[in-house]
Amino acid sequence: MTRVSEFFIGLLFGWGLLISGMTDPGKVLGFLDLAGAWDPSLAFVMGGAILIGVAGFAVAKKRTTSFLGSAMHLPTSRDIDRRLIIGSLMFGAGWGLAGFCPGPGLVTMGSGEPKAVLFVAAMIGGMALFEVLDRRERSLSIQPGRGQK
C-alpha cells in the first residue's frame, strides 16, 4: 500500500508541475527576470501549494505515525549555517542559468526532451560530487586535532 501511494503521489506531483507550467524553463525564467517582462505565475504556484501544505503539515506535526502506519520523517535540523546558505545560492544560480530545478528537470526528462536528459545527468553528477566532498569533509573533521580550533 505504501508503494502504491509513493508511486501515485510522485505521479500527482508531476501532474501539478505540468499543469502549473513550471516544467517550462521559459516560464520559470520569466518569473526570475524582474527587470524584463515579468511573469508572476510562479508566485501563484507557490501560493496555491503552500495554502494546502500549511493545513497538511499542521495535521502531520501532531501525529506520531502516518495514516498508513509509517514513521514520521519530519526534518529535525534547525541550523541556519554556511552550508545552507552557500548551497542555496549555488542552487539558485543553476536554476537561473537554465530555468530547471530538480522536479521539473526530471518530469521534462520523462517527456523525452534531450536537454532535460542532459540537465538531469549533470545534476546527478553534482549530487555525486557532493557525496565525495561531504565524505572527505566528515573524515577530516573526526581526525584528532583537525576541525576543532
Binding site: L84, S88, M90, G94, F100, V120, A122, G126, A128, L129
Partner: peptide, 14 residues
C-alpha cells in the same frame, strides 16, 4: 553547468 550547480547546491543546502 546548471545541472552541476543545482545538484551540488541542493545537496549542500539540503
Amino acid at each position: 553547468a546548471a545541472g552541476l550547480l543545482v545538484g551540488l547546491g541542493t545537496r549542500y543546502g539540503s
